[in-house]
Computed example of a mutant assay.
Amino acid sequence: METKISRDMVEKWLKAWSLSRKLPMPVRYKSGFKIEVGEEKQKIRYVFSELNDDFVELSEQINDPWIYLKVCSSPDEVKGKVSEKWIVQPQGYMMYCFRPMKSSGTSLCEDYRIEHEEYNSTTVVKIIAESGEQASIGRIVLLDDLAVYDRIVTEEAYRRKGLAGFLIRELEKIALSKGISNNFLVATEQGKAVYEKMGWKLYSLYTSIVITEND
C-alpha cells in the first residue's frame, strides 16, 4: 500500500540526490522544487510531491527541450494532465525500508575486491573484478536520520551474480554504523524487484516527463 507522500521527505531525498551528484541544492519552486542540473540532456529538473495545478501550469509554460518535470504520481495520471509535447519516461519507484534490510547471507567471491570513496556526505562503494574492471557501483548519502541510496549500477557482464544485493548491504553497513536505519531511494522497474526481496516497500510511483529535441 502506498504511503501518503511527504513534501519534506521529497525535499530531503532531493538534497541527498544533489549531494551525491555534486549539484546545487534544490530550491523551492511554488509547491515543488527546482534543481539546476546543467547537463546537455538534463538542464533543469522540477520535482513535485503531488500532481497539482503548479505542475500542470509549469508544463504549459515550458517549451524548451531537456527540462524534466517529475512528480509522485502514475504515468497515466500525468498523461491525462499534460500536452502531447511531453514524453513520459520509464516508470520510477520511490521506495523505503525503515528497518535493517533482510539478509541473504551471501558473501563476495574472492575474485572481487571493494573500494571506497568519500565526498560531501556521500560514500561511494565499488566492486572491482579480478580483471580490474568495475563490476558494480553505488552511493549512499547520510542526511540527518535518512540514508539515501543513489546510482546503483551493475555492469551487464556481471549481472545475476548477486553483486547488486551485496553492494546494497555494504552501503547499508555505512548507515547502520552511524545509527541510521531509515533507507530511501528511487528504483527502476528492474531494481524494484531486487529491493523488494530485501524488505523495501513502495513509497510512491515516480513519473518523469521531458520535451526532447525536435527531429
Rank of each mutant, 00 (worst) to 15 (best):
N182I: 05
L19M: 14
S181P: 00
V88Y: 10
I114G: 09
E50F: 01
Q91T: 01
P100Q: 06
A187I: 03
V194D: 08
Q134I: 11
M1E: 06
R160V: 05
V37W: 14
A129I: 06
E36Y: 08
I87K: 15
M94T: 03
S181Y: 14
S59H: 09
E39W: 15
L14G: 05
V210R: 01
V124C: 10
Y96V: 13
S107R: 07
H116D: 08
I114N: 09
W13S: 00
C97R: 00
E50L: 05
K70T: 12
Y195W: 02
N183E: 02
R7T: 13
I127F: 02
G132K: 07
S31G: 08
R28N: 10
S20P: 01
L58A: 11
K22S: 10
P26E: 12
T154C: 05
I209L: 09
D64I: 09
E11W: 05
A135W: 08
T106A: 15
G38C: 06
K178P: 01
A16H: 07
G105S: 08
A157P: 14
I209F: 04
E133P: 03
S131C: 08
S177M: 12
E189T: 12
V10G: 06
D111H: 10
N182A: 05
E172R: 04
L176S: 13
F55M: 05
G162A: 06
L171N: 05
I137Y: 13
M25D: 13
K43D: 01
R21V: 02
E11L: 13
K15Y: 00
M101N: 05
S6V: 04
E110D: 14
E133N: 11
K102Q: 07
M94S: 10
Y29M: 07
K41W: 11
E133C: 03
E77Y: 04
A193G: 04
S107D: 03
Q91F: 00
F48K: 00
E213V: 06
A129D: 15
T207W: 03
S208N: 11
I87S: 15
Y68L: 12
S31E: 14
K34S: 09
V37A: 09
D64A: 15
K197Q: 15
G32K: 12
P65A: 09
D144T: 01
E196N: 01
S136M: 07
V194F: 04
M198T: 02
